[in-house]
């Protein structure tokens, strides 16, 4: 067990190191863009004197390395600086939005992950039948259509024609969970449709790849029924690739959903990032990028650890 803990800690260390490298990239990439926050705040009418004074106020005339370290020190404590457009702390601008995004991602994941894995098991069991083909075609269709298109289709049928769900997912404070789930159902469903195919196909492929192993043949020759061959004998050995794909898709649910947010006017972090980029609000851009990077790294770390935990050779050393 000590080995396992050490392994996890090592991975965690690598993850932090990666995050540090990414933070350097983000900071200096933004640094290389023309103009800076001072010019941005003061706008076109600024005189060189006012710009210089603001730079001094904001500490922008210090060397980049020093500012990077200050920024990093703040970021570690959750302080990403001041938004250049609104003048509010960055955390106030994106904090609630990030929570909203997490909520929507969790909502979609709670539906999509079990559905995808169960469907994947079923199509592996019924491989090369009509059911398998139909499921493949449907999920492929949903993954190959753009999210905004899927979103509009769902709005058209479920909101406009059937009038079952609201087309716009506007949130207000004081809504209870049921209300929240109801209002965000359509964006969540859109995301479910987008991520299910990938996970389902990987589950199917990972299971089928194992079906030619000697221990699967052994199970069959022991008279184990087909569903049990898949669920009990193949699936436990197929977790590693499945977990990896699930982690990638979860990361996508958090970092890649801006189009869905726009379609449903959902106040998530994706929109905040797009706004910040168009308004050249560098502190917000940096904060969002760092949060996204951390999400990716954390989920991949979780996938690695999950894959290790499902490997009996590592869990039960000799």
């Amino acid at each position: 067990m000590g080995d396992l803990l050490r392994l996890v800690l090592k991975r965690l260390g690598y993850g932090l190191l990666t995050l540090l490298v990414v933070s350097i990239l983000i900071f200096f990439a933004v640094e290389m863009l023309p103009g800076d926050v001072a010019e941005q705040i003061l706008g076109q009418g600024a005189t060189p004197e006012t710009v210089a004074r603001l730079r001094e106020q904001l500490g922008l005339n210090q060397p980049a390395v020093v500012r990077y370290l200050q920024w990093l020190g703040g970021a570690v404590q959750g302080d990403f600086g001041i938004s250049a457009t609104s003048g509010d702390p960055v955390m106030d601008v994106i904090g609630t939005r990030f929570v909203n995004t997490l909520f929507l991602a969790a909502y979609a994941a709670v539906i999509a992950v079990p559905v995808a894995i169960i469907l994947g098991i079923i199509v592996a069991l019924l491989r090369n039948t009509i059911f398998d083909r139909v499921a493949n075609v449907l999920t492929l269709t949903s993954i190959s259509s753009p999210e905004f298109f899927l979103g509009y289709i769902l709005i058209l049928f479920l909101a406009v024609k059937a009038n079952m769900f609201p087309a716009i997912a506007n949130l207000s404070s004081g809504m209870d969970l049921g209300e929240l789930l109801y209002r965000t159902f359509l964006p969540a469903l859109t995301l479910v449709l987008v991520v299910t195919a990938h996970m389902m196909r990987m589950t199917r492929a990972a299971i089928i790849a194992l079906l030619s192993s000697p221990y699967i043949e052994m199970a069959r020759l022991k008279g184990v029924p087909p569903w049990k061959v898949i669920v009990r004998h193949a699936l436990p050995n197929a977790w590693a690739p499945i977990i990896n794909v699930v982690a990638l898709n979860l990361a996508y649910l958090i970092t890649g959903v801006v189009l869905v947010e726009v379609v449903f006017v959902y106040p998530g972090i994706g929109q905040a990032l797009v706004d910040a980029v168009s308004k050249r609000d560098f502190p917000v851009v940096q904060a969002c990028s760092l949060i996204f990077a951390a999400t990716f790294i954390l989920l991949n770390l979780a996938a690695d650890v999950g894959a290790i935990l499902t490997n009996p050779r590592l869990r039960h050393p000799k």
Binding site: Y215, R232, N237, P312, R313
Partner: peptide
């Protein structure tokens, strides 16, 4: 070695 399921 190959015919016993490694997971059980």
């Amino acid at each position: 070695a190959a015919s016993f399921n490694p997971a059980h």
